[in-house]
Protein backbone atom coordinates (compact mmCIF):
# COMPACT_ATOMS: atom_id res chain seq x y z
CA UNK A 1 0.00 0.00 0.00
CA UNK A 2 1.27 3.47 -0.91
CA UNK A 3 2.01 5.64 2.07
CA UNK A 4 -0.58 8.40 2.45
CA UNK A 5 1.73 11.30 3.28
CA UNK A 6 -1.03 13.89 3.42
CA UNK A 7 -2.99 11.92 6.03
CA UNK A 8 0.13 11.25 8.10
CA UNK A 9 1.20 14.87 8.15
CA UNK A 10 -2.25 16.20 9.09
CA UNK A 11 -2.73 13.62 11.82
CA UNK A 12 0.77 14.24 13.16
CA UNK A 13 0.01 17.96 13.26
CA UNK A 14 -3.14 17.17 15.25
CA UNK A 15 -1.26 14.94 17.67
CA UNK A 16 1.35 17.70 18.15
CA UNK A 17 -1.34 20.33 18.71
CA UNK A 18 -2.60 18.30 21.67
CA UNK A 19 0.72 17.05 22.99
CA UNK A 20 2.74 20.24 22.77
CA UNK A 21 1.09 22.26 25.58
CA UNK A 22 1.35 19.25 27.89
CA UNK A 23 4.98 18.72 26.89
CA UNK A 24 5.66 22.38 27.69
CA UNK A 25 4.19 21.91 31.16
CA UNK A 26 6.29 18.79 31.68
CA UNK A 27 9.51 20.46 30.49
CA UNK A 28 8.86 23.71 32.34
CA UNK A 29 8.03 22.03 35.63
CA UNK A 30 11.61 20.80 35.96
CA UNK A 31 13.21 24.25 35.52
CA UNK A 32 13.74 27.01 38.11
CA UNK A 33 10.82 29.38 38.65
CA UNK A 34 12.77 32.59 37.98
CA UNK A 35 14.13 31.26 34.69
CA UNK A 36 10.55 30.54 33.55
CA UNK A 37 9.29 33.93 34.75
CA UNK A 38 11.93 35.61 32.57
CA UNK A 39 10.78 33.43 29.70
CA UNK A 40 14.18 31.80 29.27
CA UNK A 41 13.14 28.20 29.74
CA UNK A 42 13.80 25.48 27.23
CA UNK A 43 11.74 22.73 25.61
CA UNK A 44 14.03 20.07 27.05
CA UNK A 45 13.20 18.90 30.57
CA UNK A 46 15.98 19.11 33.12
CA UNK A 47 15.99 15.67 34.73
CA UNK A 48 17.64 17.03 37.88
CA UNK A 49 14.53 19.14 38.46
CA UNK A 50 12.12 16.20 38.73
CA UNK A 51 12.28 16.59 42.51
CA UNK A 52 9.68 19.37 42.14
CA UNK A 53 7.00 16.70 41.85
CA UNK A 54 7.79 15.26 45.27
CA UNK A 55 8.00 18.83 46.54
CA UNK A 56 4.55 19.98 45.34
CA UNK A 57 2.97 16.72 46.44
CA UNK A 58 4.36 17.22 49.95
CA UNK A 59 4.33 20.99 50.30
CA UNK A 60 1.98 22.43 47.68
CA UNK A 61 2.72 26.01 46.70
CA UNK A 62 1.99 29.58 47.72
CA UNK A 63 -1.59 29.83 48.97
CA UNK A 64 -2.54 26.18 48.46
CA UNK A 65 -2.47 23.00 50.51
CA UNK A 66 -0.14 20.09 49.60
CA UNK A 67 -1.02 18.56 46.28
CA UNK A 68 -1.52 15.04 47.63
CA UNK A 69 -4.40 16.45 49.62
CA UNK A 70 -6.02 18.19 46.67
CA UNK A 71 -5.56 15.09 44.51
CA UNK A 72 -7.25 13.05 47.22
CA UNK A 73 -10.22 15.46 47.36
CA UNK A 74 -10.50 15.38 43.55
CA UNK A 75 -10.28 11.60 43.54
CA UNK A 76 -12.91 11.26 46.26
CA UNK A 77 -15.17 13.73 44.52
CA UNK A 78 -14.85 12.11 41.08
CA UNK A 79 -15.39 8.63 42.50
CA UNK A 80 -18.34 9.62 44.71
CA UNK A 81 -20.05 11.43 41.83
CA UNK A 82 -19.44 8.66 39.29
CA UNK A 83 -20.49 5.77 41.54
CA UNK A 84 -23.33 7.72 43.15
CA UNK A 85 -24.77 8.79 39.82
CA UNK A 86 -24.55 5.27 38.43
CA UNK A 87 -26.16 3.73 41.52
CA UNK A 88 -29.19 6.00 41.78
CA UNK A 89 -29.63 6.15 37.99
CA UNK A 90 -29.64 2.37 37.63
CA UNK A 91 -32.24 2.08 40.39
CA UNK A 92 -34.54 4.78 39.06
CA UNK A 93 -34.22 3.60 35.45
CA UNK A 94 -35.04 0.07 36.68
CA UNK A 95 -38.14 1.41 38.40
CA UNK A 96 -39.24 3.31 35.30
CA UNK A 97 -38.56 0.53 32.79
CA UNK A 98 -39.62 -2.62 34.65
CA UNK A 99 -42.53 -1.56 36.83
CA UNK A 100 -45.89 0.19 36.52
CA UNK A 101 -46.67 2.49 39.39
CA UNK A 102 -48.65 5.63 40.08
CA UNK A 103 -46.62 8.73 39.37
CA UNK A 104 -44.22 6.91 37.05
CA UNK A 105 -44.67 9.39 34.25
CA UNK A 106 -44.42 12.35 36.58
CA UNK A 107 -41.22 10.96 38.12
CA UNK A 108 -39.72 10.49 34.67
CA UNK A 109 -40.47 14.09 33.70
CA UNK A 110 -39.13 15.46 36.96
CA UNK A 111 -35.84 13.65 36.32
CA UNK A 112 -35.86 14.75 32.70
CA UNK A 113 -36.26 18.39 33.76
CA UNK A 114 -32.88 18.39 35.48
CA UNK A 115 -31.27 18.03 32.06
CA UNK A 116 -32.23 21.63 31.55
CA UNK A 117 -30.92 23.03 34.80
CA UNK A 118 -27.11 22.84 34.96
CA UNK A 119 -25.43 24.47 37.96
CA UNK A 120 -24.16 27.28 35.78
CA UNK A 121 -27.64 28.73 35.33
CA UNK A 122 -28.73 28.66 38.96
CA UNK A 123 -25.67 29.72 40.90
CA UNK A 124 -27.13 31.90 43.63
CA UNK A 125 -30.33 29.98 44.50
CA UNK A 126 -28.46 26.68 44.67
CA UNK A 127 -25.95 28.28 46.99
CA UNK A 128 -28.70 29.56 49.26
CA UNK A 129 -30.35 26.13 49.37
CA UNK A 130 -27.01 24.59 50.29
CA UNK A 131 -26.48 27.18 52.99
CA UNK A 132 -29.95 26.50 54.38
CA UNK A 133 -29.13 22.80 54.63
CA UNK A 134 -25.78 23.53 56.30
CA UNK A 135 -23.88 21.83 53.48
CA UNK A 136 -21.44 24.64 52.68
CA UNK A 137 -17.84 23.55 53.15
CA UNK A 138 -18.58 19.86 53.46
CA UNK A 139 -17.66 16.91 51.29
CA UNK A 140 -21.35 16.03 51.10
CA UNK A 141 -22.12 19.49 49.75
CA UNK A 142 -19.33 19.12 47.23
CA UNK A 143 -20.64 15.84 45.81
CA UNK A 144 -24.29 15.12 46.63
CA UNK A 145 -25.95 17.84 44.48
CA UNK A 146 -23.99 16.64 41.44
CA UNK A 147 -25.13 13.04 41.93
CA UNK A 148 -28.64 13.51 40.52
CA UNK A 149 -28.43 12.74 36.84
CA UNK A 150 -30.95 12.87 34.06
CA UNK A 151 -28.45 11.80 31.40
CA UNK A 152 -27.47 8.58 33.16
CA UNK A 153 -31.09 7.71 33.95
CA UNK A 154 -32.15 8.25 30.34
CA UNK A 155 -29.23 6.14 29.13
CA UNK A 156 -30.00 3.20 31.42
CA UNK A 157 -33.68 3.40 30.62
CA UNK A 158 -32.75 3.10 26.95
CA UNK A 159 -30.49 0.10 27.68
CA UNK A 160 -33.09 -1.60 29.89
CA UNK A 161 -35.90 -1.14 27.39
CA UNK A 162 -33.78 -2.94 24.80
CA UNK A 163 -33.42 -6.05 26.97
CA UNK A 164 -35.48 -8.78 25.27
CA UNK A 165 -38.72 -9.79 27.01
CA UNK A 166 -37.73 -13.45 26.69
CA UNK A 167 -34.77 -12.89 28.99
CA UNK A 168 -37.01 -11.61 31.72
CA UNK A 169 -39.67 -14.27 31.19
CA UNK A 170 -37.01 -16.95 31.49
CA UNK A 171 -35.67 -15.39 34.66
CA UNK A 172 -39.11 -15.19 36.22
CA UNK A 173 -39.80 -18.78 35.21
CA UNK A 174 -36.71 -19.70 37.24
CA UNK A 175 -38.22 -17.88 40.18
CA UNK A 176 -35.98 -14.78 40.09
CA UNK A 177 -37.41 -11.79 41.92
CA UNK A 178 -36.71 -8.14 41.03
CA UNK A 179 -33.47 -8.01 43.01
CA UNK A 180 -32.00 -11.19 41.62
CA UNK A 181 -32.95 -10.22 38.10
CA UNK A 182 -31.22 -6.86 38.52
CA UNK A 183 -28.09 -8.30 40.09
CA UNK A 184 -27.60 -11.51 38.13
CA UNK A 185 -28.91 -10.59 34.70
CA UNK A 186 -29.51 -6.90 34.07
CA UNK A 187 -26.25 -5.51 35.48
CA UNK A 188 -23.97 -8.09 33.79
CA UNK A 189 -25.78 -7.49 30.49
CA UNK A 190 -25.25 -3.72 30.81
CA UNK A 191 -21.60 -3.97 31.92
CA UNK A 192 -20.18 -2.21 28.83
CA UNK A 193 -22.56 0.73 29.35
CA UNK A 194 -21.66 0.89 33.02
CA UNK A 195 -17.95 1.02 32.14
CA UNK A 196 -18.41 3.72 29.52
CA UNK A 197 -20.54 5.83 31.80
CA UNK A 198 -18.06 5.46 34.63
CA UNK A 199 -15.31 7.00 32.47
CA UNK A 200 -17.50 9.89 31.36
CA UNK A 201 -18.72 10.63 34.88
CA UNK A 202 -15.31 10.27 36.51
CA UNK A 203 -13.91 12.85 34.10
CA UNK A 204 -16.97 15.05 34.71
CA UNK A 205 -16.48 14.91 38.48
CA UNK A 206 -12.72 15.43 38.35
CA UNK A 207 -13.02 18.45 36.07
CA UNK A 208 -15.63 20.41 38.05
CA UNK A 209 -14.65 24.01 38.69
CA UNK A 210 -17.62 26.32 39.28
CA UNK A 211 -19.37 24.10 41.82
CA UNK A 212 -16.41 23.59 44.20
CA UNK A 213 -15.58 27.28 43.82
CA UNK A 214 -19.05 28.16 45.10
CA UNK A 215 -19.66 25.62 47.77
CA UNK A 216 -16.26 25.02 49.36
CA UNK A 217 -14.19 27.97 50.50
CA UNK A 218 -12.33 25.88 53.07
CA UNK A 219 -8.85 25.26 51.59
CA UNK A 220 -8.93 21.72 52.96
CA UNK A 221 -11.68 20.98 50.41
CA UNK A 222 -9.78 22.44 47.43
CA UNK A 223 -9.77 20.14 44.44
CA UNK A 224 -6.66 20.09 42.32
CA UNK A 225 -8.40 22.05 39.54
CA UNK A 226 -9.35 24.78 42.01
CA UNK A 227 -5.82 24.72 43.43
CA UNK A 228 -4.15 25.32 40.08
CA UNK A 229 -6.29 28.34 39.29
CA UNK A 230 -5.49 29.66 42.77
CA UNK A 231 -1.79 29.19 42.11
CA UNK A 232 -1.85 31.40 39.01
CA UNK A 233 -4.07 33.92 40.79
CA UNK A 234 -1.26 36.07 42.14
CA UNK A 235 0.55 36.88 38.92
CA UNK A 236 3.36 38.81 40.61
CA UNK A 237 4.95 35.89 42.33
CA UNK A 238 3.61 32.91 40.44
CA UNK A 239 5.93 29.96 40.92
CA UNK A 240 5.54 28.68 37.42
CA UNK A 241 7.42 25.43 37.90
CA UNK A 242 4.98 24.47 40.67
CA UNK A 243 1.99 25.46 38.54
CA UNK A 244 3.26 23.31 35.68
CA UNK A 245 3.96 20.32 37.93
CA UNK A 246 0.48 20.68 39.43
CA UNK A 247 -1.07 20.87 35.93
CA UNK A 248 0.69 17.65 34.91
CA UNK A 249 -0.44 15.88 38.08
CA UNK A 250 -3.99 17.20 37.68
CA UNK A 251 -4.45 15.86 34.17
CA UNK A 252 -2.81 12.46 34.66
CA UNK A 253 -5.59 10.61 36.57
CA UNK A 254 -8.53 11.42 34.24
CA UNK A 255 -6.36 10.88 31.16
CA UNK A 256 -5.26 7.52 32.57
CA UNK A 257 -8.89 6.50 33.13
CA UNK A 258 -9.81 7.46 29.56
CA UNK A 259 -6.84 5.63 28.05
CA UNK A 260 -7.24 2.48 30.15
CA UNK A 261 -10.93 2.18 29.31
CA UNK A 262 -10.71 3.67 25.83
CA UNK A 263 -12.50 0.85 24.04
CA UNK A 264 -15.69 1.01 26.14
CA UNK A 265 -15.57 4.72 26.51
CA UNK A 266 -15.52 5.49 22.77
CA UNK A 267 -18.23 2.93 22.07
CA UNK A 268 -20.39 4.13 24.93
CA UNK A 269 -20.00 7.79 24.08
CA UNK A 270 -20.75 7.48 20.38
CA UNK A 271 -23.58 4.99 20.81
CA UNK A 272 -25.23 6.45 23.87
CA UNK A 273 -25.22 9.97 22.46
CA UNK A 274 -23.50 11.65 25.37
Amino acid sequence: MRTDWLAHSILCAGVLLFALPVWLALAGSTQPADVIARGEWSLVPDLHGLGIYADVLRNGGPGVTPLWRMLLVSFGMALAIALGKIAISVLSAYAVAFFRWPGRRLAFWVIFLTLMLPVEVRIIPTYSVMAGLGLINSFTGLTLPLVASATATLLFRQVFLAVPDELMEAARMDGAGPWRFLRDILLPVSAPNLAALFVILFVYGWNQYLWPLLVATDPRLDTVVIGIVKMIGSEVQTEWNRVMAAAVLALLPPVAVVLLMQRWFVKGLAEGDK
Partner: peptide, 8 residues
Protein backbone atom coordinates in the same frame (compact mmCIF):
# COMPACT_ATOMS: atom_id res chain seq x y z
CA UNK B 1 -7.47 15.40 25.62
CA UNK B 2 -11.16 14.71 26.27
CA UNK B 3 -10.10 14.14 29.88
CA UNK B 4 -8.48 17.55 30.44
CA UNK B 5 -10.41 19.95 32.67
CA UNK B 6 -11.41 23.26 31.03
CA UNK B 7 -9.54 25.18 33.73
CA UNK B 8 -6.42 23.05 33.27
Amino acid sequence: PYAIAPAV
